[in-house]
Write a protein that binds this DNA or RNA. Structure first.
Lengths: 225, 225
DNA sequence: CTTCTATAACTAGAATTTTCATGATCCGGT
DNA sequence: ACCGGATCATGAAAATTCTAGTTATAGAAG
C-alpha cells in the first residue's frame, strides 16, 4: 500500500511514516504545498494524508487539485482545527475522512484502512464469498439468499476478515482495527473470542461453510481450506 | 489549577495551553530543560506535563530532579516513544502516567484530572459525603456503613460527582471524563441517563439522601440542597 | 510413541454497558 | 393557563464485555 503524507511538522511526519512502514506500507512524505502537488502529479497513491496547515498554501486548495484530477485515491484530512465547520467543509470538498490533531497513530491507521477498504469496494454493491453475500449499502448479510442478522461488531469483524481473505490476522490486529487504542497495550482482548464464536455460529447456522480458521498461537485466517 | 507544560514543539504547546485555559486552569510553558528546571524551582504546580524529547537534555533527568525535590505535583510524561520499555521506565521513575504522541486533548485532560484527583486524595483512606463513604483503595462504597455494590461506570461517575461537589457539571463534561474521545463530537451521550438513574437508585435504596440534582438544560449538581 | 505441561482457544452464562421506545417534566412564547 | 419543543427519566431489550471452567494444541520430556 502506498501512502502520501503531506505534513510540515517533522516529528509527526516521522512518527506517521515509521508507523506505517512497520505495517509494510510504502510511505512518502511532502512538507510543502509545492512538493505535494508535484508528487501527486507524478505518482499514484492508495491514500493521501493531508494536513491543512501548510506553510505555503491552503490545504483545501490542494484538496481541490487532487479531486479535479478525478483520481481515485482516498484523502484523509489531518488538521488542528477542530471546529465542526472546518470538518464539514473538508468533507464537502470530497475528503473521505477528517481527523483532528492530536490523535492516536492506531486511530489514523484504522481510518486509512477504512478508506482504502471503502475505495476498494467503491461502486461495488456487494461482496460475495462462496454462499455469503454482503450488501454494503444496507449492511445486510445474506447466506444462501436468506438474511442473517449480525450485530455491528459481528458485521465489522466479518468485513475485516473478508477484506483480509487468505491472510492470517492476529488477535491484536483485529483488536486494533475494531477498537482503536482506547484499551491498554498488553491487554487481554479475550472478548474477541465471544464475537468470533457468535459470528461463526450465525454463519454456519445459516448454512455457510466453516470459513474462519484458527491458526494456533497466531490468529485467524478467513477463506476456504 | 496550575499546570506546567514542558514541551518544545510550539504548535502542540499552543494547543495544550489554550485547551486548558478554556477550563479555567492556569497554564505555564517551558520549551527547554533549562527553563523548565528554573520554573520548577520557583513555583508550585498541580501537575507537570513533561515531554521527553527536549532539545537540550534528557527528559528523564528532569523527572529525577522533580522527584528528588520530594514535592507532590503529579507528573505526566508525554512522549513520541511508544515502546513499552520507555513507558515502564518512565513510570518506574515516579511519573504518574504516560501518554504517547499524538493523542487527543480531551484524553490528556482526563488523565491530568485523574492525576490531580489521585493526588488530592493521596494518603486519604476514604472520602465521606454525608452518609456515603468511599474506600478508595478497595473501590468499595458504603452507605450507613452497609456496602453498596456499584459497577465500574457507576463508581467512576460517583467519584467524578463527588470531586466536583457543588459545581454544576454538564453532560458533555461527564462524557469526556468518563469515556475520553472515542465517540464522535455532537454525539448523543443519552446512555449517561441510564448510569445516572442506576447510581441514584442504588444510593437512595441504601438510604442515602438525594444528592444528584438535575439542572434543567445544563447538567447535574452533586451535593446537599 | 505416549505422557506431561504450559499456553492458547473455546464456550456458556453472567455482568455490564448501551440502545430504544415511551412517558414525564420543564420552560419560553403565545 | 396552554401549547410545543426540548430535556430528562425510566424500564426493558439488545449488544458488548467479562468470568470461570473446559478443551485443544504444540513442544518438551520420559
Amino acid at each position: 500500500m502506498k501512502i502520501l503524507v503531506i505534513e510540515d511538522e517533522k516529528p509527526l511526519q516521522e512518527s506517521i511514516s515509521s508507523y506505517f512502514q512497520e505495517d509494510g506500507s510504502r510511505c512518502e512524505v511532502a512538507s510543502t504545498f509545492r512538493e505535494a502537488s508535484e508528487k501527486i502529479g507524478l505518482y499514484q497513491y492508495d491514500c493521501i494524508l493531508l494536513d491543512l496547515g501548510l506553510p505555503d498554501g491552503d490545504g483545501l486548495k490542494l484538496l481541490q487539485e487532487i479531486k479535479s484530477l478525478k483520481r481515485k485515491e482516498g484523502v484523509l484530512i489531518i488538521s488542528a482545527r477542530h471546529s465542526l465547520d472546518d470538518k464539514l467543509e473538508g468533507l464537502d470538498m470530497g475528503a473521505d475522512d477528517y481527523l483532528v490533531k492530536p490523535f492516536h497513530l492506531s486511530e489514523l491507521r484504522a481510518r486509512v484502512a477504512a478508506i482504502v477498504r471503502r475505495k476498494k469496494f467503491d461502486g461495488q454493491q456487494q461482496i460475495i464469498f462462496q454462499e455469503i453475500q454482503i450488501e454494503l449499502s444496507s449492511m445486510r448479510v445474506l447466506v444462501h439468499g436468506m438474511p442473517v442478522v449480525l450485530t455491528k461488531k459481528e458485521y465489522d469483524l466479518l468485513i475485516y476478515f473478508i477484506s483480509n481473505q487468505g491472510k492470517v490476522v492476529t488477535k491484536n490486529a483485529i483488536a486494533e482495527h475494531l477498537w482503536g487504542d482506547d484499551m491498554d497495550l498488553a491487554d487481554d482482548y479475550d472478548f474477541i473470542y465471544s464475537h468470533i464464536k457468535n459470528l461463526r455460529r450465525k454463519l454456519t447456522a445459516a448454512g455457510a461453510i466453516e470459513c474462519i480458521h484458527s491458526i494456533y498461537g497466531i490468529g485467524y485466517k478467513f477463506g476456504i481450506l
